[in-house]
Design a binder for these strands. Sequence first.
DNA 1: GTTTATGCAAACGATTTGCATCTAC
DNA 2: GTAGATGCAAATCGTTTGCATAAAC
Lengths: 159, 159
Amino acid sequence: MENRLDRIKKQLHTASYKLTPQREAIVRVLLEHEAEHLSAEDVYLYIKEKSPEIGLATVYRTLELLTELKIVDKINFGDGVSRYDLRQEGAKHFHHHLVCIECGSVEEIQEDLLGEVEEIVEKNWHFQIIDHRLTFHGICRRCQEKATGGEKNKKAASI
Amino acid sequence: MENRLDRIKKQLHTASYKLTPQREAIVRVLLEHEAEHLSAEDVYLYIKEKSPEIGLATVYRTLELLTELKIVDKINFGDGVSRYDLRQEGAKHFHHHLVCIECGSVEEIQEDLLGEVEEIVEKNWHFQIIDHRLTFHGICRRCQEKATGGEKNKKAASI
DNA sequence: GTTTATGCAAACGATTTGCATCTAC
DNA sequence: GTAGATGCAAATCGTTTGCATAAAC
């Protein structure tokens, strides 16, 4: 974990960006909450606990910076908020997501399942693929089990 | 085309929504600009040419309505604007998109290329898929040709 | 006639920006 | 010392909402 932080710091340095405590704090929060899909506001609130003087604008600016450097990926599940996801180290491609339309949970698939599909697209559409976004909308395992158990929970979350 | 409009009108009627001229105008615009990926503002401007008294709020409300009825799909390419795409008649799934990071053009893939991938996901992740969003980011054919100084690549894109 | 839809303007929330101040280098 | 980064507040932009009026049924 410490290694990973250091490597990100080096990336910033290499790209000649200054290493401010705010930037470090933001990266730390992302590392500590890797499984969640934090919005800028989420990151801001986490940091505020320890460093109350940070500004939301700085969070936005830093997240944009990290997106440019391909350290994080900016995703949008259609709810009007951008979320920021640490990219797996060395990952060429963005991972996939499973969004539950019942409970809103988001699961990640790290494997790249699109190899064959991309070959087809590159060949038949003459499109040179650089990255992809794949999200499945459906019912997660927990909600499936809930549904078959008792037909009560109906907290629809439409996208 | 006229048939399609009528069928959509019937869908509205069946769901007991009123058939207002505004709603019809919005559907017409969507039908006339099927290849584009119109934002609410785009739709608004197109309609304004012929019916200047329409309000932007009505456009938003109608597009939301059409999304609920699964007549259109709401997409987001990450530029902060929602776009609305007519769904192919009878399509169970959302079509795929090819977004060019050079020129910003958006191409559509109507075929469903995810059959096998979805089987894998349902089986290995126990996730019941209802719909999907798949977007490839890369370089479109035209921009590739531009980059290589006009290298010819005449193979037909057939499937 | 009742219910639903509309248009307008105001409200809203997420994100961006201008600017004076600060800080990493 | 200087270029770049920050914090704050104000501005911006897409979208939603309240409400009185109008139109579809």
